[in-house]
């Protein structure tokens, strides 16, 4: 290093810059070029293609995953729609069955009511007939009782009354009442 003029000057002056020692320039430049070329080849041959590959692969994976997620989402939506449809169908079916059952019950009920009405009417007619019979028989009994009573009363009063006149009188009186 002593052969360098700059270095000598630096030592003499107390402040010299090794940066300005031109004798070392070829050495630095040579090694710099070697270094740059090595780095360049390492990068362009190995590192950069690899990193670009990793990034592309990751991007692809992410895109695929997103697509898969999208697909699953669609499937889920489809499933939900199918479920909703099934639910609506079941509801409609249930309503239909309810309506059917109601109609059936209604017809049965109507028939039953009609039958009951008929029976009631029958019973009413029967009862009315019975009442009429009873009333008629009662009327006869009343007439007979009235005749007998009238005869007894006439006899008790000391009169003699033939059966025919008493009967006609009672009948006339009862008709007048009626």
């Amino acid at each position: 290093m002593a052969d360098s003029a700059v270095e000598q000057g630096a030592e003499a002056g107390g402040a010299g810059m090794p940066q300005l020692d031109f004798s070392t320039f070829p050495n630095q430049i040579f090694w710099l070029l070697v270094t740059l070329i090595v780095i360049y080849f390492v990068l362009s041959r190995v590192a950069l293609p690899r990193i670009a590959g990793i990034l592309a692969e990751r991007k692809g994976t992410i895109t695929n995953d997103i697509a898969a997620a999208e697909e699953l989402k669609l499937k889920a939506q489809e499933a939900e729609q199918a479920y909703d449809k099934a639910l609506a169908d079941a509801r409609a079916e249930a309503q239909r069955i309810v309506a059917e059952a109601k109609a059936e019950i209604q017809t049965e009920l109507d028939a039953e009511i009609a039958r009951a009405d008929a029976r009631i009417a029958e019973k009413t007619a029967e009862s009315e007939a019975a009442i009429a019979e009873i009333r008629a028989s009662a009327m006869d009994s009343v007439q007979a009782v009235a005749k007998d009573t009238a005869k007894e009363i006439v006899a008790a009063l000391g009169g003699k009354a033939d059966a025919r006149s008493v009967t006609s009188a009672v009948t006339a009186a009862m008709k007048g009442d009626a």
């Binding site: 710099l32 780095i39 390492v42 590192a47 690899r50 990793i54 990751r58």
Partner: peptide, 21 residues
């Protein structure tokens, strides 16, 4: 400079050797 080259190789070649996603 050689150490700088080794650092570059260490970071960009060895560091990415697993190629993990």
């Amino acid at each position: 400079m050689a150490l700088a080259v080794l650092c570059v190789i260490g970071l960009l070649v060895l560091g990415t050797s697993k190629r993990s996603i």
